[in-house]
C-alpha cells in the first residue's frame, strides 16, 4: 500500500506543480477565461494516456523498450522547451508589471490558447503512459484493491499538493509570485531535462549510460518519503550519469542566470536604481 502510494505521488507531483503554477498565473493576471484551455490539455493527456496504457495492458499490443524510452526522452525535452518558454513569458509579464497597473495586464498579454493547451498536455502526457501502465497493473492486481487504492491516493496527494501550491501562490503579491515560481520552475525543468537525457541514453540514442558520477542511492533511497518528494518534484537521481549531471548543471546555470538577470527596459528610459518592491 505505502510503496504503491509513493509511486503514485512521485509520478503525479511534477505535472501537478507545473499545472498549478500555470493556473495560478492565469488567475493572478486576470485570465480566468483561459482556464478551460488548461483543463482541455490536462484532460486530453489523461484520457490519451489511460487509453494507450489500456491498449498495452489488455491486448497483445506492446511497445518496445527503446520506443518507450525514446518517447519519454523526446517528450521530456519538449516539455523543458515549453516550460522554459513559459518561464520567460512570465518574466516578461513581471516587466510589464513594474510600470503598468495590474488591470492593464489583460491587454498587454495575449497568451495563446493553443500554447496553454500544449503546455498542460505535454506536462501531463510526459509521464502519462508510464503512470497509466502502473495504474492498470494496480487495477489488475491479485492482491485485492490495496495496490489500486495506494496508487490512487498517491496521485490524489500529488494533486492536493499542487492545489496547496496554487492556494499559497494566489495569496502572495505578483512580483514575488513571478520570482519564486520562476526559480522553482527552472529547477523543475532542469530535472526533467536530465531525466529526458537519461531516457535517451537508455534508448541508446546517446551513450554513456553506465558511467555514473556517484551513487548515493543508499543514503537517499527513492522508496523513502523524502526520496519520493525529491524525485517527484525535481527528478532527483541518486546515481546520475555524466551526461545527466552535465545537462542539469548547464541548463540550471544558464537559465537561472538569464532569469535572474535584470530585465532590460526598452521603450522609456528608467531610473538606474530601482527601489526594492515594497508592495
Amino acid at each position: 500500500m505505502l510503496a504503491n502510494y509513493l509511486i503514485g505521488l512521485r509520478e503525479g507531483l511534477e505535472a501537478a506543480l507545473v499545472v498549478s503554477i500555470l493556473v495560478a498565473y492565469l488567475v493572478k493576471t486576470g485570465h480566468r477565461d483561459r482556464l478551460p484551455a488548461i483543463w482541455l490539455g490536462v484532460g486530453s493527456a489523461i484520457a490519451l494516456s489511460l487509453a494507450f496504457g489500456a491498449l498495452l495492458s489488455f491486448t497483445s499490443q506492446h511497445m518496445s523498450f527503446q520506443a518507450q524510452e525514446a518517447f519519454g526522452g523526446v517528450m521530456s525535452i519538449l516539455a523543458v522547451g515549453l516550460v522554459t518558454w513559459m518561464i520567460f513569458w512570465m518574466k516578461r509579464t513581471a516587466r510589464f508589471l513594474k510600470r503598468e497597473l495590474e488591470g492593464k495586464l489583460a491587454d498587454a498579454l495575449t497568451v495563446g490558447r493553443a500554447a496553454l493547451v500544449t503546455i498542460a498536455f505535454v506536462s501531463v502526457a510526459r509521464e502519462g503512459i508510464e503512470t497509466s501502465l502502473f495504474i492498470w497493473s494496480a487495477a489488475q492486481a491479485s492482491a485485492g484493491t490495496s495496490p489500486l487504492a495506494g496508487a490512487t491516493l498517491g496521485l490524489l496527494t500529488a494533486v492536493t499538493l499542487g492545489y496547496l501550491v496554487y492556494r499559497s501562490a494566489v495569496h502572495i503579491n505578483l512580483a514575488t509570485f513571478f520570482r519564486y515560481t520562476g526559480i522553482g520552475l527552472v529547477v523543475v525543468a532542469a530535472g526533467v531535462l536530465a531525466y529526458g537525457f537519461h531516457d535517451l541514453q537508455e534508448a541508446r540514442w546517446i551513450g554513456g549510460l553506465t558511467s555514473t558520477v556517484f551513487d548515493i542511492s543508499s543514503q537517499v533511497p527513492l522508496s523513502s518519503w523524502y526520496g519520493t518528494l525529491l524525485k517527484g518534484a525535481f527528478n532527483f537521481n541518486p546515481a546520475p550519469t555524466y551526461v545527466e549531471l552535465g545537462v542539469w548543471t548547464t541548463y540550471l546555470a544558464v537559465t537561472m542566470t538569464l532569469f535572474l538577470w535584470p530585465a532590460k527596459s526598452r521603450p522609456a528610459p528608467r531610473p538606474r536604481v530601482e527601489a526594492p518592491a515594497t508592495n
Binding site: 504503491n4 506492446h62 518496445s64 523498450f65 497493473s137 492486481a141 492482491a143 495496490p147 537508455e202
Partner: peptide
C-alpha cells in the same frame, strides 16, 4: 550492462510484463 528490455514501477502485489 546493455539493456535489452526493462519494466519499471512495479508496485508490491502488482504484475507487469515486457517483451524483448
Amino acid at each position: 550492462s546493455k539493456i535489452m528490455g526493462e519494466v519499471e514501477n512495479i508496485g508490491p502485489g502488482t504484475s507487469q510484463d515486457f517483451i524483448v
